[in-house]
Design a protein around this nucleic acid. Structure first.
Lengths: 344, 344
DNA sequence: GTGGCATTTGGGAGCGCTCCCATTTCGATG
DNA sequence: CATCGAAATGGGAGCGCTCCCAAATGCCAC
């Protein structure tokens, strides 16, 4: 019997138990729990007391079964991200998302997708509609996930977008504008041979940053030189490689705009390696203004995008979409801002 | 009617539908889906085909309702952590946890608890048993959460522990050993006035690092000097403040052991501010060997703890506990290792 | 006191699944 | 070919909730 007692740890009270205790019907308890106004003050009081006495907490599975809502949303971070800690961008998104989600009563499901197997798992999961909505960051042009989301008619908001014709809702930063501001700043400081290390160009954000770089040069009537463009992948390693390449091709360059802070950090390593001083010989500007920008030596001038805020906004758009599905998809572009430190 | 069609987007097939299509009973389909061996090859084939044709995916809510399992675990990161991105430790834990969880079929619920309100929300959530188990990191001595978990008899594993008498399962690093190794290294390099900036001492890990520091000095017969101990909080800001304090009290110190990399980074700022060179005037050692250690100038010597691995192990212990609740709680201590770079 | 309307209430039906048991089917053996 | 135990199967019951409708109650005006 002690064994039996052990096996049955205090069965949780059900709606029915609360109803019995409060001397009302199930319907009334349900109404109180869900905050319906159609309940008399007396009944509400009785129910609330019963709930408190019994320590009643609704069973979400039962609720889900009938409402087919889950009160959870997934934040999907795809591939590439070997370690979250080396990608401050994602950490900041998570922080913002989590903060905003806590204010509604939704739970955050974090899904890191590293390989095909995990992507399949996610597909199954989404097909089963185990979340009310999805936040998807770091979208690549040929990413199959956005299409899946559309097909499933699952509310979704992207961080970034696939293209300018994006059909899903999204939040992203003014990438081209930020890049332009960075390059103009370099020009204004008298730099003339300005290179860039791009992000992966199958990401619209990275492409936009490159476009902004080119625009700024064109505006200033600086002749385009493809030798000054190296392709990276947003990682530190990519930044280092890109910078080495640039240095090999155009030893005379005097500034570089990197499409992420991480790449800028890598570029600075390559510059140090090559005996160039920052900013005296080569000025460096990054993008994101993430935590690494304050820790490089010298501290990094960077284009700030409000990453955490973007996480919050993504949640807000998603909640709207969940509330009235299929309505117009909101798409937001947030301003960026150049934060000048010592590297440029 | 187009409106009606719009409202009912392709109702998902149920178990029953699969059963009908395969010409078998519900029970058989359920057995196939759940991998029971008690199914004839013929029936299994028929069911699998029906599942494929219909695109059947089980409804988790219905399943949960009867099994009272949720196939999800929560990773709880409490308070303090203003921004995930500035705390690489947590990002690494998340990475490990997520990777390990993906291999079983569990989902990861990320819960950042920043304030009392969010803690209440979590309490309600756990009381409702909306997860099968909980991973709790950054445990403080008086944290009410571990007790709640015990009371609820919810499988749980801690990252760190409340004390040496911890009753819950946990995974942590050999903090004292790591600290000892760090200080011994400083002594071996001829440093004699070695200070420390501690973490929050209501965390066992931080206390153990301080204890290790003291042990190493005692072993070497260096007289204890409380003036060389400053209290921090694991943050960069705390490290800067702690270092300033130390410098004010013991201007002659020639080394400092910081209980986290972040604090070491802060300490290095304070040292630079004070015109001290690292490592010539003052050697610095951190703890964690997180991503920041590779980015300080000079690169930081640090005590490595296998953070990501710890996340994975926490999941493994949790799965064991979920599988056979109430069995002995496993407690693991992982070795640390000094990674020597340029700061010491 | 009566009628009529609005408000409140109770509880049946049903969401999709697993559990379990009674029944059927199969296969081996004598 | 009959018999028996093992293996496979079907389907009722029930998990705890919301939805909804019919019934009860309350309130006001006349």
């Amino acid at each position: 019997m002690s064994r039996a007692a052990q096996q049955q740890p205090a069965a949780r009270p059900t709606l029915e138990a609360v109803a019995a205790r409060a001397g009302v019907g199930r319907g009334t308890v349900s109404r109180v729990v869900n905050g319906s106004p159609k309940v008399s003050a007396k009944a509400r009081a009785a129910v609330e007391q019963a709930i408190a006495e019994l320590g009643y907490v609704p069973n979400q599975a039962a609720r889900s079964l009938v409402t087919s809502r889950t009160d959870a949303v997934a934040l999907v971070i795809p591939e590439s991200v070997a370690k979250l800690s080396s990608e401050p961008y994602f950490s900041d998104i998570i922080t913002g998302v989590s903060a905003e989600l806590a204010e509604s009563d939704l739970q955050l499901l974090l899904v890191l997708v590293r390989n095909e197997h995990e992507r399949e798992r996610l597909t199954r999961y989404l097909t089963a509609r185990r979340v009310d909505g999805v936040l998807l960051v770091s979208v690549h042009q040929d990413d199959p996930l956005p299409e899946l989301l559309e097909r499933l008619e699952l509310p979704a908001v992207l961080g970034g977008r696939r293209s300018a014709q994006e059909t899903l809702g999204y939040v992203h930063a003014d990438n081209a504008g930020g890049a332009r501001a960075a390059v103009r700043h370099l020009l204004s400081r008298g730099r003339t041979a300005i290179g860039t290390v791009t992000g992966p160009l199958d990401m619209e954000g990275a492409a936009a940053r490159l476009a902004g770089y080119r625009q700024a040069l064109a505006e200033a009537a600086v002749p385009a030189d493809e030798g000054l463009v190296a392709h990276g992948d947003f990682t530190e390693h990519g930044g280092r490689e890109g910078m080495r390449e640039l240095l090999a091709r155009r030893p005379g360059l005097d500034a570089v705009f990197c499409a992420s802070d991480l790449m800028a950090a890598g570029a600075m390593q390559a510059l140090r390696e090559a005996g160039r001083r920052v900013p005296q010989d080569v000025a460096v500007i990054g993008f994101d203004d993430s935590v690494v920008a304050r820790h490089t030596e010298p501290p990094l001038t960077s284009v700030r995008q409000p990453t955490e805020e973007m996480g919050r906004l993504m949640v807000q758009l998603l909640l709207e979409e969940i509330a009235r599905p299929g309505r117009f998809r909101r798409q937001m572009v947030l301003p960026t801002e150049l934060v000048v430190r010592d590297s440029a």
